[in-house]
Design a binder for these strands. Structure first.
Lengths: 148, 148
DNA sequence: GTGAGATTTTGAATCATTCTAAGTACCAAC
DNA sequence: GTTGGTACTTAGAATGATTCAAAATCTCAC
């Protein structure tokens, strides 16, 4: 069952939206409620299904809009950041990727073994990871692609 | 300009394909050549455009097939691993994600500040990152979602 | 209450990717 | 050298997530 927002959460929503000049609407409340109710990293479609339980008339487009708005004002995070076309690289050495916001270019960043180790060490017992994907997003002033 | 494969690269291709009972074909050679020629993490469509310069008749479907084959036999790596629907989470504390291969579930993994620091430290000078995305892929025997 | 601007809705459009069915190439056995 | 099998490629249709466009609705300041 999806509970109503607590006073505190409602204020949080209000404040975050307000800061960027946007309003609290029933739809936004519904979507936010859904996100807080079950923190299982739902897809848009899952959010949509659940939101309809609370507000039967909401549309899928609105759910997309709300989520975009929330991401924009820092209320929620996108897990598959900037879903774009899949990219391929023939560099098989362990490395991270850095996507330059400005150019869209992706650079390889060498990944020293001790960093990999420290990453693995944060996994709780019972979690066994074969693949670690790391990607940075930001700006690079570098002239040329580094390590490749 | 896209050069032909070196002897060495051709052998590499041959061996990797052979291991999984697959053949070297002109199309696969062309696609592999393209991948090695410019290591800029191209999208499928970019690979397709470039492959056509080398082999005008090649089809998009074949490029998809070749890339899938290469990933399967470990010749290349996919940058946007498992492109799926975008997911959302309201956990704003810095954390990594762990996707369980079996269930498809995504778990939050707490990210200690020192690990973040060590990650930032691998960026070459001139690279300034605002967002770091980390995702593990593997198996979890845990009963329940941990830190959330 | 009116009007401007923001928000929502529906349905169409787009884009990456996958699927399907038919065609082609190659190799082995005869 | 023909036959058959298997892997591979092709074109185009189908799918699925997401975005867009235009009309309808809401909200708030006045």
């Amino acid at each position: 069952m999806i509970q109503n927002l607590t006073e505190h959460d409602r204020e949080h929503l209000q404040e975050a939206l307000g800061k960027s000049g946007q309003k609290v609407t029933p739809q936004r409340e519904a979507v936010f409620t859904v996100l807080l109710a079950e923190r299982d990293h739902p897809t848009v479609d899952e959010v949509f299904q659940r939101a309809r339980e609370v507000m039967p008339g909401v549309s899928l487009a609105t759910v997309y809009n709300c989520l975009e708005t929330f991401v924009g004002c820092g209320l929620v995070r996108q897990v598959n950041h900037e879903r774009e076309s899949t990219r391929y690289c023939p560099n098989l050495a362990p490395h991270a990727h850095f996507r330059d916001k400005e150019t869209g270019r992706v650079h390889d960043i060498e990944l020293p073994p001790e960093v990999i180790k420290s990453l693995r060490s944060i996994l709780p017992p019972g979690f066994d990871s074969e693949v670690i994907e790391i990607s940075f997003h930001g700006r690079a002033q570098a002239k040329d692609s580094p390590a490749n």
